[in-house]
Structure formats: C-alpha cells, structure tokens
C-alpha cells in the first residue's frame, strides 16, 4: 500500500482500544504532518484521553497501528517519550521553585547538556521578557506568565511533538493570543502541536481539527471547511451538531 502521508509525524491506522466489552477507541485513522497544529476535540467520555495515552506511549492499543515521531506505540514507547513534550493546565510547574530552577529541572529530566540548557534558558527568558524575574518563585508570577513559561519549558528539549491539554483555559484574552504566538513560533522551528480542549474557540486557532464522538472520529478538516460543511458560524456549532446527533 502506498502511503500518501510519507511525511506524517503521527500515523494512526485502525487504532482500537477496548476495556472489557467497552470500546473506548474505535478504529481511528488519521495523520498529522510536521509543523501542523492539530486540534483533537471530543465531549467527555468520547475516548480522547484514551487515544492520547496511547499516542504518548502510556498505554498499548488493543488493535491497529500507530507511529509517533517514527516510533511504534507497542514497542518503542521509551523513544516516544523522549521525543514528545507535554503541558496541561493542571500540572505544569512547581510552585515553590523559581523560574530558573523549574527550567533546570525539566532540562535535567531530558538529559540536556548543561551548556545547551544554559543557552536555551537565556534565549527563552529573553523571548518571554522574564530575564529579570528568573529567580522569582512560580507562585509569585501571574497566571498568564505561568502558562507561557509552561509551554516554553515543554518545548525546551525541542521535542518533535508537543501535546497540549486545554492550554489557555481561564487566561485573559491578550495573554491567550500571546500564548498562541508562542505556539506559532514553535511550529516555525518544526515542532508539531497536538491540542486537546473542551473550548471550541481554541479550535479556531488550529490548522486542522478532528472531532471524536463515541470513540470514532466524526469529522476531520480545517476549521473553515468544517464550518462551511456544517453551515455553521463557529466551531462550537459544528461540535454541537456532531456531538448531539447521537
């Protein structure tokens, strides 16, 4: 079989996961190309979390195949973990450590050489305009800063793919747009971004969006195309049409 997605960084073919009689993830097929912002949406219990766990190498599928950053999700989970970054709204940085200490810690986890770590730390703090606050505790800085810092830390080791879980929930709109600026910068250097969220307005920022309903992918396209196809003004309407059909 000739694969038209030679360059995909994530390849998913017939991916299925069952828990007893319950099929949480049912025959998923999709590709994500390098430098793409891929939105992965679905209602609670639609199977999103299960699918992401498989893609991050935390759980094995029951059937089907998937490759993440060129590694197999059955056998090469350790390699997958080295090549991905992860950030969620709930867990990101240690509140009782300073900005620099957090960065050092994450760099250490991924075994980054000290000189490289120092260089990237400086560059990153410069970019975020946080250089003079480098020794502030995380709990002393505003929420918006934390979010931006958390994302930068998650991409510090230059992973091939970064998974974001509701990255901008609750932050003010300006910080949110600055956050998306960072994401667009990340894809500019070749990082692929995989976003899951409940908030459909976050989906508008993605290049392509997939919507999961009952373990299956019910729709997958660019936000513009989806809105056109479902004759909807916003992604929220598209989502409601799909998720409420059941």
């Amino acid at each position: 079989m000739v694969d038209k997605y030679q360059n995909s960084i994530i390849k998913v073919r017939g991916l299925t996961k069952r828990f007893g009689k319950f099929t949480a993830v049912d025959n998923l097929n999709f590709d994500v190309s390098q430098s793409e912002i891929f939105g992965f949406l679905g209602a609670n219990g639609a199977g999103k979390t299960t699918a992401i766990k498989i893609l991050c190498g935390l759980s094995s599928p029951s059937e089907g195949n998937a490759e993440v950053a060129g590694f197999d999700v059955y056998k090469q989970t350790e390699n997958i973990k080295k090549n991905i970054g992860y950030m969620s709204q709930s867990f990101s940085l240690y509140e009782d450590m300073t900005i620099v200490e957090n960065i050092r810690f994450y760099g250490g986890i991924y075994g980054m050489p000290l000189t490289l770590l120092k260089e990237r730390t400086n560059h990153m703090l410069n970019r975020l305009k946080m250089t003079e606050y480098a020794n502030k505790l995380i709990k002393e800085i505003p929420l918006g800063w934390k979010q931006k810092l958390a994302f930068s830390v998650a991409t510090l080791h230059r992973p091939k793919i970064v998974f974001l879980d509701e990255p901008t929930g609750g932050v003010d709109p300006i910080t949110r747009r600055q956050f998306w600026d960072l994401i667009y910068e990340a894809i500019d250097i070749g990082i692929t971004v995989f976003v899951t969220t409940h908030y459909m307005d976050e989906a508008e920022y993605c290049h392509r969006v997939s919507i999961m309903v009952d373990g299956k992918i019910a729709a997958l396209d660019t936000p513009d195309n989806l809105k056109q196809q479902y004759n909807a003004k916003s992604m929220n309407e598209v989502f409601l049409q799909l998720a409420r059909k059941k």
Binding site: G169, H198, N236, R244
Partner: peptide
C-alpha cells in the same frame, strides 16, 4: 462551566 464539555455547557 469550567472543565465541562461543550455539549454539557450548552
């Protein structure tokens, strides 16, 4: 509605 999916929010 924090942390609730779009359908339940609606």
């Amino acid at each position: 509605t924090t942390g609730v999916d779009a359908v339940s929010r609606k």
